[in-house]
Amino acid sequence: MNTNASSCMETKERDNLVTEIIGRHMNSKGALIPILHEVQGIYGYLPNEVQVKIAKEMNIPISEVFGVITFYSHFSLKPKGRYNISICMGTACYVKGAGPILDRLKETLNIGIGETTEDGEFTLEACRCLGACGLAPVLTVSGQVHGRLTKDDVAGIIDNCKSDDRRIAQ
């Protein structure tokens, strides 16, 4: 099977899943947010063409779909890396040294906030609070919490992700 046929099939399968998700939630009050969550789970982000499909099938303006996506920080308009690093910049974390940790992350990964490394492995985000103030400063790597950090911990966290990849590949 050639790659074009394979990617077309994958696109068709995803399209069918989106239609199924919309149908399942269509008659529920506040359906848009659960639909967006599930669809983002399929794509890893919310591509423009999918936003248009959701708007059309729900019979709502595309501006409403886009407004919800851009209002909630959980939703993404761009593909994210395999590892999503989110550093807390809330008061407790900031006071206890999140700033230098963020600087080290940017330097180590060679990206800024909201960017993804060229190899597609890491996305760096900053958030206001992760709800783990007792562990400040805190960051998450794809949902896994790392607390009581210093900037010197950054290399080890990144290396752990890379070594996990090497173990999986073997």
Rank of each mutant, 00 (worst) to 15 (best):
M1V: 11
M1D: 02
N2Q: 04
N2K: 09
S6T: 06
S6L: 07
M9G: 02
E10F: 15
T11Q: 14
T11S: 15
D15F: 15
N16K: 10
N16M: 14
L17E: 14
L17T: 11
E20G: 12
I21W: 11
I21H: 04
G23F: 00
G23I: 02
M26A: 11
S28R: 08
S28W: 00
I33T: 13
L36N: 03
H37V: 13
H37G: 00
E38D: 15
E38L: 06
V39Y: 00
V39L: 01
V39N: 11
Q40G: 04
Q40A: 05
Q40T: 13
Y43P: 07
G44C: 04
Y45R: 02
N48A: 12
E49Q: 13
Q51I: 01
V52I: 06
K53D: 06
K53P: 02
A55E: 12
A55M: 04
K56A: 10
E57P: 06
M58Y: 05
N59I: 03
N59F: 00
P61W: 08
P61M: 11
P61C: 13
S63T: 13
S63F: 04
F66E: 09
F71R: 10
S76V: 05
L77R: 11
G81W: 01
G81K: 00
R82Y: 08
Y83Q: 02
S86N: 12
I87P: 08
I87H: 02
C88G: 09
M89N: 08
G90P: 09
A92L: 07
C93G: 05
K96A: 15
G97R: 03
G97S: 06
A98L: 00
D103G: 01
T108M: 12
T108A: 12
L109R: 05
I111W: 01
I111F: 02
I113M: 04
G114A: 02
G114I: 12
E115L: 04
E121M: 15
F122N: 05
L124Y: 06
R128E: 14
R128Q: 07
C129G: 05
A132Q: 09
A132T: 12
C133A: 09
C133Y: 12
G134P: 13
L135A: 15
A136D: 05
V138G: 12
V141H: 01
S142V: 04
S142R: 08
Q144K: 13
H146V: 09
H146K: 14
G147F: 10
K151Q: 06
D152F: 00
D152G: 05
V154T: 06
A155R: 13
I157Y: 01
N160P: 02
N160Y: 02
C161W: 06
K162I: 09
D164W: 04
D164Y: 03
D165T: 10
D165K: 15
D165V: 12
R166P: 03
Q170F: 06
